[in-house]
Design a protein around this nucleic acid. Sequence first.
DNA 1: TCATGCGCAACATCAAATGTTACAAATAAA
DNA 2: TTTATTTGTAACATTTGATGTTGCGCATGA
Lengths: 145, 145
Amino acid sequence: MRTDSRLSRMLHVLLHMARHDRPYTSEHIAGMLQTNAVVVRRTMAGLRANGYVRSVTGQGGGWTIACDLNKTTLLDIHRAVGGRHIFAIGLDNDNPSCAVERVVNSAVADALDRAERLLIGRLGEVTLAELAEQFDAICHAELKQ
Amino acid sequence: MRTDSRLSRMLHVLLHMARHDRPYTSEHIAGMLQTNAVVVRRTMAGLRANGYVRSVTGQGGGWTIACDLNKTTLLDIHRAVGGRHIFAIGLDNDNPSCAVERVVNSAVADALDRAERLLIGRLGEVTLAELAEQFDAICHAELKQ
DNA sequence: TCATGCGCAACATCAAATGTTACAAATAAA
DNA sequence: TTTATTTGTAACATTTGATGTTGCGCATGA
């Protein structure tokens, strides 16, 4: 399949929403992400189901952020969008009868597990607030020039 | 796309070849992997191009291992089969003009890079010889029962 | 000469994200 | 109440790269 960009897309949207006090329409967000409003609704639905954003139908409606930036991590967002497969690489057969294959599987799975734990751990360490601060710092530096 | 199982498939084959002194035909290997002989040839071609195996055409021909088990790592095989994409997760846009997106990208890329370095490092630490030893140990233990 | 096997091109298939179309339902404003 | 706006969702098409399949040419040993 294509590489899953839902995490980075949603982070992009959330940070914009964090610095904007009115709702964004799906259409507006689709423009930011260069995609379709339906794709936006579909992906954001996962965030809404977990309480990270709210949506309002009808005129003047749209999407707003609804979480504490200091308590929400990249891992929370990753999980909310339903990202399952982290790796494009995997085992050929999860339950082999061949002893050779079991040895291979345990070695490959061990390496993948270590990397997955590191990735998940890292995503869980970074909050939306930290990213927002980085953005603010960049804006500040650019204004000073 | 489907998850890339070429690394584990090729490791499986290489370990079998390491404990077998006659050539395996593509057809035989395809049986071991529950796939097609053409898929085997296609994947093994990468290993052959890097000198890890040899192939002989014609009657009595087939595939034999051609590398030093102590000097060949899982990383060598991973690279020989042309595994490019390690992650199913990625950035939405590699060269964004939006400052928010650049902040998001650097955070996500940083987490992915750390995990990739760990995975690559781990694959580079494990040799085929170590896997073969593990297999031998299992066979030994089973015979003792 | 013939059976066995690899080499390779040219498709077909698969799976999961992404893209698209169509329409129903909710809401604010005229 | 009517209308324009906006989300909710189903249904289907597209994309991408690994995997699967067919067909045929070439090499080798018996």
